[in-house]
């Protein structure tokens, strides 16, 4: 496609009227509402569906929903999840003995949430995870479950397991 260059009038070629236009535009911005979030005092509220830290959810019976199928562990692109499976007396025979997520590795892609057949792992809105020590970023099972319980908006997700 050939784009025709507009033929400028002589006052446009002077460049000065355009400069004045630009100056007025920026001057108007001087008094506009600022968009900066003053971070420690103001907090940004993530939108619905924001992908933050993945956490473990608890079922209505008070047990963790995870059945230790390890699908999340296999799909996790940076391999941030480690699960050690264990057996229980409960009708659902498997449970995670240990469940680690390394937030230092996690890329918050949400594949674990997508792949989980039990809706046991969910991406929370939490995103301020920084720490001075990398080992502190590896979260164990109890911590992940606790983080899952704190989230009121995840309450609706606490349905009993579907059969089949």
């Amino acid at each position: 496609m050939i784009v025709k260059r507009p033929v400028l009038k002589w006052w446009e070629r002077l460049y000065l009227p355009v400069v004045e236009d630009g100056l007025l535009t920026t001057f108007r911005h001087l008094f506009k509402k600022k968009v900066t979030v003053q971070y420690p005092e103001e907090r940004w509220v993530p939108p619905e569906g924001f992908r933050g830290a993945p956490v473990l959810l608890t079922g209505l019976d008070g047990r963790e929903k995870c059945t230790s199928c390890k699908l999340c562990m296999f799909i996790c692109p940076p391999q941030a999840i480690r699960i050690v499976a264990g057996e229980t007396e409960h009708p659902i025979e498997k449970y995670p003995q240990e469940f680690y997520i390394d937030y230092g590795l996690c890329i918050f892609c949400g594949y674990c949430q997508e792949v989980c057949p039990c809706e046991a792992i969910w991406l929370k809105h939490e995103f301020e995870l920084a720490d001075f020590d990398r080992t502190n970023l590896i979260f164990g099972k109890d911590k992940l479950l606790q983080m899952g319980r704190q989230e009121p908006y995840l309450k609706g997700k606490e349905k009993p397991l579907k059969k089949g």
Partner: peptide, 10 residues
């Protein structure tokens, strides 16, 4: 300051 205000920052 002015550059910030012209760009809607503080």
């Amino acid at each position: 300051k002015i550059s910030a205000y012209l760009q809607d920052r503080y």
